[in-house]
């Protein structure tokens, strides 16, 4: 077992974990942060996307122990303390950018990462750079609309 410390959504968490615990399983099973979802556990769907040290990553494909000392933002940490939603969250509601909602935390974290990276300017670039997040409900046109709105703010 390894002792690690993670700063999650601004709070420092100390954990004792087997090294083969993924960051995703650590969040879900050890920290009860179940907003981050497991859709494939192999980096093939994007449902587990979180923001780690400022970058969007697939939390299923990294061991928590490898992120010792890192800052992680999950879907639970995007809204302001008072409850005001992040612009991407607001835009997702306004544009109905989800149906079942299961891929949504990953889509939103990915969208936040995309905006920060700043490489997407056109619709096609947004589509391409959001292609690591599968939405089986097929909400893609609405996800695009939501991100365009959030980017304009």
């Amino acid at each position: 077992m390894n002792d690690i410390a993670l700063t999650i959504n601004g709070q420092k968490k100390n954990l004792t974990l087997a090294p083969w615990t993924t960051l995703l399983d650590a969040l879900r099973e050890h920290l009860d942060l179940t907003g981050t979802k497991k859709g494939c556990d192999h980096g093939q769907c994007g449902a587990c996307t979180v923001i780690c040290d400022g970058q969007r990553i697939n939390s299923c494909l990294t061991f928590a122990v490898m992120k010792d000392g890192s800052e992680v933002t999950t879907i639970e940490g995007l809204a302001k303390a008072g409850g005001e939603l992040h612009p991407v969250q607001q835009a997702f509601i306004k544009h109905d950018a989800f149906q079942c909602g299961y891929c949504t935390p990953g889509q939103i974290c990915s969208g936040v990462g995309l905006i920060k990276e700043g490489h997407a300017k056109t619709d096609d670039e947004i589509r391409e750079l959001m292609s690591g997040n599968i939405c089986r409900c097929g909400a893609y046109p609405n996800i695009l609309a939501a991100l365009k709105e959030a980017m304009s703010k």
Partner: peptide, 14 residues
């Protein structure tokens, strides 16, 4: 919408 964009919505494994 609000529970789904904040990760509060609980699914079977949550």
């Amino acid at each position: 919408g609000p529970v789904k964009v904040t990760g509060e919505a609980k699914y079977a494994a949550d």
